[in-house]
Design a protein around this nucleic acid. Structure first.
Lengths: 236, 236
DNA sequence: GAGTGGTCTAGACCACCGC
DNA sequence: CGGTGGTCTAGACCACTCA
């Protein structure tokens, strides 16, 4: 790990622990240079990470103010996958793999996954929290990029397989959140508790070399959906 | 404006225009140094902005790949306010100021706005698109920070007043998206078209010096809600 | 091996803040 | 005024990609 990442890591965990308290100022960049024995640019890169992830706010002439993380609970960034989401939740989680097969990409999938031809994995999983079936995840994965997927992997975590076993790096995602009427099938698959709408999170996930490898639609029962975001004001 | 911001601005607009096409590589950092007559660090800062806002993807040993912006439509970042949202929409927009008064902060508001005592503006606005009342915005503003608000300002844009007339700078926001049952009052205020749920976007907005000045609940009719996000994978 | 981006350094000047 | 963060420079070494 690079120096500036180590410094970011140390400072962020100390802020999370409460060892560095919110509403106080971090040591100045000059001071941090001395403490860590690095150049100012290295310190600044670490602070840039803290800034981007909402840990601090920098003020000219004053210093780096530590923000109050508990005002809205973590995580700062949006949901990336079910397994990341459940970390922040309580309750017993189960996954039922409802659909799992490999198919030739049809016209719509070719367009969604931006591929010419080839195989696509189609996976549907029902997620239950405390024995209530409240989330339906529908995944389409480019079979030319992700190879050797099994039902086992779908039962556990797709991301773990992709990152750890295939050694691919997930880089970025584009997400869209809308609310849609549940279909009859969906009403039967999930425990709808009287609701007839589902919150749909559509996401397109890309690898480090910018190849799109996954298109996911994650449908949540409205009362079990929550999305938290931290955003700095767009410049320009 | 700083040099690196100018370079960012030029490159980003050229990407948006299509003058620089997606799926091509930008000139190398070395090349950009020469073209703009700046140091490598300055070029890199400009590229960092492009990276953060989802314009490019950098690959070691290869270069900076221009991403396809139209895959999911803009804006890249989330909603910050109604007036920013409508820029990306079609249809005729109207605002009705439904509630506007100044009140002494009660216990709940003191906690939400993180203030000891003082006045709070309470504003409720109904937003209509093509004469359908589909959004209810409820704003609470710290009256000790934001002074001299009038009904006029509420009718137009609060942010314009705060940034242009008061000269304050809005810095960052924390947002939470959930779905809740509409109350009887809300059902009457809005054209619900048979829906009984509302998508609630709660946001806490901060100034540059990290003072919280606004707490907003924006309630959207489910079919009129859409949120787009671009996220890089969290490191560490 | 030449070119790319990733990291790190040392030094400089500026605008802003608070005393 | 001294200290803070914001910007910019010039130079260095590394790991990676591609021919």
């Amino acid at each position: 790990m690079a120096k500036y990442q180590k410094i970011y890591h140390e400072l962020s965990t100390r802020i999370k622990n409460g060892e560095i308290r919110s509403h106080t100022y971090l040591p100045s960049e000059n001071e941090l240079m001395k403490q860590y024995g690095v150049s100012r640019d290295t310190v600044r890169k670490a602070l840039d990470l803290l800034l981007n992830y909402g840990y601090i706010q920098k003020n000219k002439g004053k210093g780096s103010l530590v923000l109050d993380l508990n005002r809205i609970s973590f995580p700062i960034s949006g949901i990336t996958s079910f397994s990341e989401m459940v970390k922040t939740m309580h309750g017993e989680i189960k996954t039922i793999v409802h659909v799992f097969y490999e198919q030739e990409a049809d016209e719509e999938l070719k367009q969604q996954l931006h591929m010419e031809k080839g195989k696509v994995y189609h996976i549907e999983r029902i997620r239950s929290i405390d024995d209530e079936k409240v989330i339906l995840d529908i995944d389409y994965l480019n079979g030319e990029v992700i190879k050797g997927l099994t039902l086992e992997h779908a039962q556990n975590s797709l991301y773990k397989y992709i990152e750890n076993e295939l050694g691919l790096k997930i880089s970025f995602a584009r997400k869209e959140i809308t609310v849609e009427k549940a279909s009859k099938e969906e009403m039967e698959l999930l425990d709808m508790a009287g609701y007839d709408l589902l919150v749909c999170v559509k996401s397109y996930t890309y690898l480090e070399d910018a190849t799109l490898f996954q298109y996911t639609i994650s449908k949540h029962r409205p009362d079990k959906f929550r999305f938290v975001d931290f955003a700095r004001r767009m410049e320009l």
